[in-house]
Design a protein around this nucleic acid. Structure first.
Lengths: 194, 194
DNA sequence: GTCTATACTAAGATAGAC
DNA sequence: GTCTATCTTAGTATAGAC
């Protein structure tokens, strides 16, 4: 049985490991993350990492969970004021900024690009929490059908993907979020979808 | 100087190499493509591939060019009949189907997920040809501003990305193409964008 | 919990014979 | 143009001492 002090130290170390891993991903891409490199950055030797993660895929899973945790925290920190539409816009903006400012997040959280990686159940539960939040707000603005929800997730995914792939560092696509969202909210109603 | 016969044989071989590479990508993902595996499938030893490609990145570049060639050929084969809107819809449908039916195409042609890969100039020219075709048709239906073009490319990218990531093999997002496109074409005009 | 040492695997690339 | 042989590099993972 671990003392709470030991647990805290362990958690601290793990946090440092995940921070280092995300740092490498931000600098050189998700594929550039290696256990050797992560270990070096936290002042450990590569085999010592196996105390904190069970394998390379285990590391990715922990990175996944950590990133979702951070995103959910940012959403929770948003003001609760304003119309549902305004709150929805804020949420979408935070999500878009989250992935555009660090593209590997988009790769790990929203795409299927790491061979062999699937989030564990507890990690995936965080993803579902995000969907629930967005779905609830969309219902408030009158987009309650699943097909409507899918349109909005595709919109965010598409703006993010294009921004990252074709104008990294710029805002050519991200700045379209507000006007396009307004237009779709105003004009694409339930009866327009199959 | 090569005889045309020799050139033809060489081209045939190269085609087989690229077909094998795309086959591996379709089966196991773009990251699973290795020179050893490609060579094995075409009945060669790995070092012999260097006669046909200059390096691993050179292989990716050739795969990129070949895939764009195939996509452009499919578009060229589309009927020229019907309204501009109908022709636009056909083009978008072909592009969406092209990537959704083989996700690694999306990864190589439209995302930036291979570390170190950038298409060579002649290969990139093929990508520009595609953009030109789409842009021309969009102008015909009244979407002539660059910002409008960006909205449509984001729409296709987003539907494709979500379809691949969250409903592989299904049509939950791809079937939204027609209704959403109709809605945006009808309601999101030039004056709605920044 | 961290270390050293090492096994294991696998990839890209080059040299030189045929 | 294809081969065999080999270099070089690099990664994940495990064993066992401290």
């Amino acid at each position: 049985m671990l003392s709470s002090h030991q647990q805290a130290r362990r958690q601290e170390r793990l946090d440092a490991v995940l921070a280092a891993a995300w740092e490498i991903a931000a600098e050189s891409g998700l594929g550039a993350v290696t256990l050797h490199d992560v270990a070096r950055r936290v002042g450990l030797r590569q085999p010592s990492l196996y105390v904190y993660v069970s394998s390379k895929l285990g590391l990715f899973d922990a990175m996944y969970a950590r990133a979702y945790g951070e995103l959910l925290a940012r959403l929770a920190a948003l003001p609760d004021s304003g119309s549902a539409r305004l709150r929805l816009m804020r949420i979408f903006w935070v999500i878009l900024d989250f992935v555009v400012s660090q593209p590997p997040r988009q790769q790990l959280l929203f795409q299927r690009t790491i061979p062999g990686f699937t989030p564990s159940e507890p990690s995936y539960a965080l993803a579902e929490k995000l969907v629930e939040q967005v779905t609830a707000l969309l219902a408030e603005v009158g987009a309650s059908r699943p097909e409507q929800v899918d349109v909005y997730t595709a919109l965010i995914a598409g703006l993010g993907a294009q921004q990252i792939a074709n104008d990294p560092g710029g805002d050519r696509w991200s700045r379209l979020l507000e006007p396009v969202l307004d237009c779709i909210l105003d004009h694409c109603r339930r009866e327009d979808l199959p």
